[in-house]
Amino acid sequence: MMCYPPTPPFSIFMCPHPFLPNFQACHAHSLHPLVYNKSRSLSLRKHQFVGENAAMISMGCLTGFWIIALLTLHGSDVGESKGNSLNEPDIPFPPARPTPQNLAAICHQGQGRPRYPASFFSRSGGSRYRRLGNTINRLESWYRSCCSEQESQILCCTTQAWKETLSQFCVEEYSTKTLAYECCEGRGDARWICFNSELPNPDYNPTLGYTAPAVPPQPEFTFNASAC
């Protein structure tokens, strides 16, 4: 749809130029009153018709402009969200603290939860995500070790493994020049409460159809049974 400015009404009768003689006579006296009034009425109606159409066209153009603007903004948002989903690996973090309710899943469904080998990450950047992935790999390895302990000590062992893993994660966070993970700023119970909040997988549920790949061996975890 093309948008044009409104045009003035068309003249029905041709008269001399305003600066030529008899111009007023042409408009005031030469035309019969009935003809003059009729032509004036037609001119006014035509002017009103043109004005209304110009207004409708202007409104249509304005509406079309806003529709295009909104679609453009929506497209930019979609494009931005796709970029984030491609650039930021999906790593469920932080891991939940072991409890009597999720302990069975920790020990029996570990192979159905994600692992993060080096091939999972892009070569450029993403050091924070590598630390997150390595932390999960270490914790799952230590959970497997704890689940071989006596049943009465499994919960204590997995809890120690959880705290030690996250403590090492915080040490790694502070060894970089970037801002450390917010929960690492806490001390004592405040740190563990922070890590155990806003959990992506509090029940340690497995991913349907997923089998964990092999990852490099992790340092052995030393369980302190006397601290239970």
Rank of each mutant, 00 (worst) to 15 (best):
G51C: 14
S76L: 11
L71Y: 02
V50T: 13
Q24L: 11
L42G: 08
F65K: 05
R40P: 00
G125R: 03
N84R: 14
E151V: 05
A69M: 15
E149A: 13
H17K: 05
V35E: 13
I68N: 04
E140C: 04
M56H: 07
G110A: 09
P92R: 00
N87D: 13
S148F: 11
P89I: 00
L62Y: 03
L44H: 12
S127L: 14
C146D: 02
V35W: 06
Y116M: 09
R131V: 01
F93V: 06
N53W: 15
A28Q: 04
S85M: 03
P98V: 05
R45Y: 10
G133T: 05
G60R: 10
T99P: 01
N137W: 04
N87Q: 13
A28I: 00
L42I: 12
H32G: 11
T135D: 00
L103M: 15
S122C: 04
S148Q: 15
R40T: 01
C146T: 03
Y36Q: 08
L70I: 14
G126N: 15
E149V: 02
C15H: 07
Y36E: 06
P98I: 05
D90E: 09
D77M: 10
S43Y: 07
F19L: 13
W142R: 15
T63R: 03
L62C: 06
Q48I: 10
R113P: 05
K38N: 10
Y116T: 06
L31Q: 15
Q150H: 12
I68F: 12
S81G: 03
N53A: 14
R130Q: 12
T158R: 05
A96P: 01
N134R: 08
K38R: 12
L139D: 02
Q111H: 03
L103A: 13
C156H: 08
P18Y: 13
I91C: 03
R123I: 13
A105W: 02
Y129E: 10
M14R: 07
I154W: 01
P95F: 09
Q111C: 02
